[in-house]
Design a binder for these strands. Sequence first.
DNA 1: GTAAGACATGAACCTGGCTTCAGGTCAAGG
DNA 2: CCTTGACCTGAAGCCAGGTTCATGTCTTAC
Lengths: 146, 146
Amino acid sequence: MKYTIGQVAEMTGLPISTLRYYDREGLFPNMERCSGIRKFGEQEIEAIRVIECLKKSGLEIKQIKRFMAWCAQGAQTYSMRKALFEERRAIVQAEIERMNRVLDMLTFKCWYYEQAGRDGNEDRLRRLPPEQMPEEIRRAYENAHA
Amino acid sequence: MKYTIGQVAEMTGLPISTLRYYDREGLFPNMERCSGIRKFGEQEIEAIRVIECLKKSGLEIKQIKRFMAWCAQGAQTYSMRKALFEERRAIVQAEIERMNRVLDMLTFKCWYYEQAGRDGNEDRLRRLPPEQMPEEIRRAYENAHA
DNA sequence: GTAAGACATGAACCTGGCTTCAGGTCAAGG
DNA sequence: CCTTGACCTGAAGCCAGGTTCATGTCTTAC
């Protein structure tokens, strides 16, 4: 089953301009064309999923292009592709940990301003040592400031 | 305790140019100066932590500036600050969920290329229905493609 | 046959978040 | 004194990742 760029934009939610940009950057090295018109196949649809995934892992377009070139080269690049995914997995794991610390900071701040609004000022809060904060908030505070 | 820009750069790991840029953008509305030289106090150090946190939550510098202006305005802005942190918390929570799906995709791909390398080709893998994948991998695969 | 709508292209433009540059002030040390 | 090093400024530059623009081609519908 082959799709036009408009259909793919519809399916994926990506703007047409972005899909063309990706193509320009070499992210679909095997894409067919029919008298100039791009024909997206299953391979390209899966490529889009992988692009989204690698982008969120922090990889740049140029390096995603390199990966797509590996895919086009066949079996001799399996180990490089595997190594790339392993690297990205470690990076994403670390990023999730950082995001959890951000979340704890935000949780703490939500509580803080809740209290400040109640008190009408920050005097009590400024003098409050972590030991006297509610259990859950102290945990968040300490994790966020670690 | 007051610090110079160089000390703060040292302490936080941020380049001096970035700290000056933040100042230029109005992120330290109350910072003191001593004959032109910036004097970073506890307030600014905490502001830097908050900036990092809000940036990772996806907030733009302009909006962080607006938040810092609220802080400078005192007690009447507590509820706006609280609302901002609540909004960012929800966004970060959603982002962590997305990152977990990215992680599952990466885990699946690691397994996939491990197998492909072993087999020497992708023939078996391409025909493999999710039900026959190892439990953990199937979970990752299904979560990633949901 | 002609107008609309989806597709195509290359080049220029935009945005956010820094970074670099050219040039200047000031305090301390040799 | 004069050099070094840390600070200052405004303006310009840079990069990634798209987006927009001016034009043009093809198909289909009236």
